[in-house]
Write a protein that binds this DNA or RNA. Sequence first.
DNA 1: TAGATCGTTTGTGTTACGTCAATCATCTAC
DNA 2: GTAGATGATTGACGTAACACAAACGATCTA
Lengths: 156, 156
Amino acid sequence: MLISALPVIDQPARRVGALLEHVNRQLRQHSVPALETLGVRPRHVLALTVLRDTGGSSQADLAGLLQMDRTNLVGLLNELETEGWVERRRSPEDRRRHLVELTAAGGELLSRIDFALAAIEDHVLSALDAAQREQLYELLRQAANLEAACTESPDC
Amino acid sequence: MLISALPVIDQPARRVGALLEHVNRQLRQHSVPALETLGVRPRHVLALTVLRDTGGSSQADLAGLLQMDRTNLVGLLNELETEGWVERRRSPEDRRRHLVELTAAGGELLSRIDFALAAIEDHVLSALDAAQREQLYELLRQAANLEAACTESPDC
DNA sequence: TAGATCGTTTGTGTTACGTCAATCATCTAC
DNA sequence: GTAGATGATTGACGTAACACAAACGATCTA
């Protein structure tokens, strides 16, 4: 009787994951047709974006950043290099490593992608005003930046 | 000469999409092993969460919310119903329709999922403090809510 | 009653992975 | 100089999660 009268902690979880996935899906569904006209796939955009934001990366690091198997990354980079969007060069410090960088063509492509995707984001995220959009961007950027450190830790 | 001296508008795009995808990937990579121990897949979580948040839904609406082909949704719901996590019942207003709802078992499972995923989010999103996490949650929730309306519009 | 809608089954195909094995080139430590 | 480790590559295999199409039965609407 007394035990059953105890207050029950029944807080709804403020779990971000499903919401992230949900919004991500919306964006992806709308983005794919636009990307197709540019001859690009979502996973291309992701790699190109990371390469731009990091200024270039070794393949091992890139695989970690993208949370992607290194074998599959080779395939992805083969596609990007074939299209002339990225360039692989041997690192002078360790010739086992490639330094992967955007080419000028890759940078231009990314600008076109940005333009197309900005319109889509305007639409999909129209429930948020400009300040909120900015806020969301900064929060995600901050969250993503720590993830970059996860390539250094086997526990990540 | 004068034209070349004009200021060039060269603002970096504040594009959320790739960041969203990036953080989403991180969360997913970490979540999958935990979900496996619960016998659950990411797409299960998504559907269960949407069903909880909407209080139930027709299949057509659910397909729209999840941005998912209705045929594939049938397969997904078959899995969920087989496990006893959801229940399909004919709508009294239109017997062509199913109303899909979480069962008690489904609700309990979701609580367990929430618990497991909360720890993972704490880790993956550790670059954000509690207030920022809350902020992110609210922004995403707001963004996601308008998306719900997209089931009503062929342009979405 | 005809046409539309909802859900279902079945089938096909694509994409994006994970994983593994083996290999070569290169590095590091002894 | 050598053994073992590392980085990238290729090829193979398998899985999951889709998109899409066709066809069908049940039900609704005009």
